[in-house]
Nucleic acid binder design. Sequence first.
DNA 1: ATATTGAATTATGAATTCATTATACATGTC
DNA 2: GACATGTATAATGAATTCATAATTCAATAT
Lengths: 239, 239
Amino acid sequence: MSHDETATMARAGADTSAPAEPIIRRTLHDELLERLRQMIVDGDMTPGEKVPEKELCARFGVSRTPLREALKVLANEGLVTLTPNRGAMIAGLTLEDLEEAFPVMGALEALSGEMACANITDAEIARIKQLHEQMMAHYEARELRRYFRTNQKIHEMILTAARNRTLSSLYRSLEGRIRQARYLANMSTSRWTQAVREHERMIAALEARDGAALAQILKSHLANKFETVKDALEASKNT
Amino acid sequence: MSHDETATMARAGADTSAPAEPIIRRTLHDELLERLRQMIVDGDMTPGEKVPEKELCARFGVSRTPLREALKVLANEGLVTLTPNRGAMIAGLTLEDLEEAFPVMGALEALSGEMACANITDAEIARIKQLHEQMMAHYEARELRRYFRTNQKIHEMILTAARNRTLSSLYRSLEGRIRQARYLANMSTSRWTQAVREHERMIAALEARDGAALAQILKSHLANKFETVKDALEASKNT
DNA sequence: ATATTGAATTATGAATTCATTATACATGTC
DNA sequence: GACATGTATAATGAATTCATAATTCAATAT
């Protein structure tokens, strides 16, 4: 090392006062948690299915410890049920669960709309309108899958505009549980049309920054969604 | 065994079709989870404090595995923060956290009131009125501690009357985090009086089963509570 | 042939062990 | 004397091991 290092430290070497960016280090269980949650929510593992501890360990190349830690957290979130000495199962969604979850989601979604109107920027509104146009195109083309993804993005953005992480995290947690139900296929044309109309009213309320109106629309929009999910659930019961 | 056992099975032996009551067996981590949560919420461990894994293991007489499983869940709930290789700390409640949590709690509490009015039985109303009388007595006697406990019971009962476990669990989770703040001592007399008045209006709305009114009262009641908690937090910051 | 009991197998819950990382302290250099 | 570097200690994350409970399957009795 050169003898004049301290005197010239700030000259050539990296600026130690602005430490690049902290290396993000994650623990295994945290990584697993995210992946498993994604798998369940995306339907890679269907409700009622046992969670094969051993297989998953092999698949992810980890030992049982972090996997089981992740499972405990998922159980706490309600995505899996954990029976002592009998391991983990993917939690199924009963009709009662749905009937409980939806009013709560309604309240949260309404709040999200209200707060979004109070905090959203013009740029964000523009971006949402843009997504809305995209979504309408998917509707015209009857591309259910893409419609759904864009739809979800819009709701995500409204949630983000509410600027409330507590709200976001609670809502996402509930939303994730619903998504398991795979209700997409069951959406009738009339419901779809209705949903699109509601979305148009949403955009209008958002532009006017009319929180109360947006809250109301979101609430009824969710009721519509509830019917779709309920149909799908009852249909799957009969298989 | 007697030869006529199958024919007379229900006679003398235990009735196998109604198996008494299932033995409730809990896992260690589940037990720990509950205890730790209680300890944190009750303030036995103050925010910022490190969680001494080793010591707790000794205290509860368990190994680190179930303890750490419980800590992961608590971290997910937001009660502790878990930094890789640096262990667990009791999560502190910043002012921002509070400002985020309260609107959400408001929405949930309002929903709770609405649903309670739709589902509550006369017996439950009677019980709540009884608790209310008790609480008023504690108010007159200026017994803050007892007042608070009875108060909490009343809110618990309303939540129960809403008949929605999803709602209950979300609300309790938020409520628990707030309770860390130890805002009790800071309640001014005027606020206390105000709170009592609000409670009287609550009871009236509940008896009339006026969901909208109760929702509104609960919401503003919570806003009042928010101010108290905020004061306490700011006061503790200055120490 | 069917049902029930008991042994073998499998898998889970918990403890222990191992390796890695952070913290505390001491020594050396400027 | 202050700061940095190196070393020792302690604690954490993850793997492995161990014990116990559940499931499976075969054998026996009805």
